[in-house]
């Protein structure tokens, strides 16, 4: 049925290989998250993946598509894992399930399934949860010193939210710094136990772990360097420009190694379906996300900004594509815009 056409030899790459490499590259980051913030992340990940896979299967059946064929590609697992590691660790199960549902149904399949969604599904889900349930979504990181066991994490997730936990750190380090810098000096703020030697305690390691995973992806050529480099560079430039005054702005080290910076740079912004396509376009796209992350973090109301920055740049991706086409062999210049005038 499938017509035979050139090239007859093809490489051994496949979508499922790409997706499962991504899953594998997420492992160090996840391990670090679990080590630092407890089993909640694992519980969330399991819930997210289970719900997402089940919903994906259901919708494929409803859409009369082959279920096995599409589940095999593993893309939904990546989406679910990205969502779960963006959520706070101590949240009720239904929040995770709703997030997965939004990602699968609204962000992915309503647009036509794999490859057709204009917005990053995990980020759509995250942003919707964030604006709908702001308290649950921003205040549920356990105190770094009091980690719930796996059993506790399960209990917390399924009903007894506050069991055995007295303390939540209400805010992530980025948030904490921004909230306090108004009345304290940089040195005073950094006295807080949530900060470590270089950046925030824990968050630094988590970001390094995601960085390692990202470098693996780069080495395996699953992603290209363009988006991570331009994204990080634009955060770096912005934070150096504005943040040289530590008493007014969050310092560079916190920007780069706290919050979701590395996760965003290597795993979320690089989602190829929703990113710009050409190398030049990717540079613009990555820089745009970095810029927006910095702007929202610094002058916006949200402690972290990945989801909104990514979604806003998802909007702009087609436009970027139109103006950043590469120069084709033999052409004197690249074709830009929507009309071919030469």
């Amino acid at each position: 049925m499938i017509s035979i056409t050139s090239p007859h030899t093809v490489g051994q790459n496949s979508v499922s290989k790409v997706m499962f490499t991504l899953v594998a590259a997420l492992v160090p980051g996840y391990a670090c998250l679990i080590y630092i913030f407890g089993w909640g992340y694992l519980v969330n990940a399991l819930i997210a993946v289970t719900v997402a896979v089940a919903l994906e299967a259901l919708i494929l059946v409803l859409r009369k598509r082959p279920v096995g064929f599409f589940l095999k590609d593993g893309s939904i697992i990546v989406t679910a894992l990205l969502l779960a590691c963006a959520l706070p660790p101590i949240v009720p199960w239904w929040l995770v399930a709703i997030g997965s549902g939004i990602a699968v149904i609204f962000a992915k399949h309503l647009f036509g399934g794999l490859g057709q969604n204009p917005f990053n599904p995990a980020m759509v889900a995250y942003a919707l949860l964030l604006v709908s349930l702001p308290v649950l979504m921003t205040s549920r990181w356990a105190n770094v010193d009091v980690l719930p066991s796996f059993a506790d994490a399960l209990t917390i997730s399924f009903g007894h939210l506050d069991k055995g936990l007295d303390a939540f750190t209400g805010a992530t380090p980025l948030d904490h710094y921004k909230l306090n810098i108004g009345r304290l000096t940089a040195d005073n703020v950094l006295q807080d136990p949530i900060y470590g030697a270089f950046a925030a305690k824990g968050w630094m390691q988590i970001n390094l772990a995601f960085l390692v995973g990202g470098l693996v992806l780069l080495a395996l050529r699953i992603i290209t360097w363009h988006i991570p480099v331009s994204l990080l560079a634009s955060i770096l430039v912005m934070s150096v420009l504005f943040g040289s005054d530590g008493d007014a702005f969050v310092p560079t080290s916190l920007h780069l190694f706290s919050g979701s910076t590395m996760l965003a740079a290597f795993f979320i912004a690089t989602d190829p379906v929703t990113a710009a396509t050409s190398n030049k376009g990717k540079l613009v796209y990555g820089a745009g996300i970095g810029l927006l992350i910095y702007i929202i973090r610094t002058w916006g109301n949200y402690p972290d900004a990945t989801a909104f920055a990514v979604l806003l740049m998802n909007f702009s991706a087609p436009l970027i594509d139109h103006y950043t086409r590469p120069r084709v062999y033999g052409h004197s210049k690249a074709v830009k815009g929507f009309k071919n005038d030469g």
């Binding site: 790409v18 893309s75 794999l114 057709q116 290209t224 190829p272 050409s278 190398n279 590469p326």
Partner: peptide
């Protein structure tokens, strides 16, 4: 599979 716009072709 559907195109995931991975850009490897580019």
């Amino acid at each position: 599979n559907p195109c995931i716009r991975c850009g490897m072709c580019e």
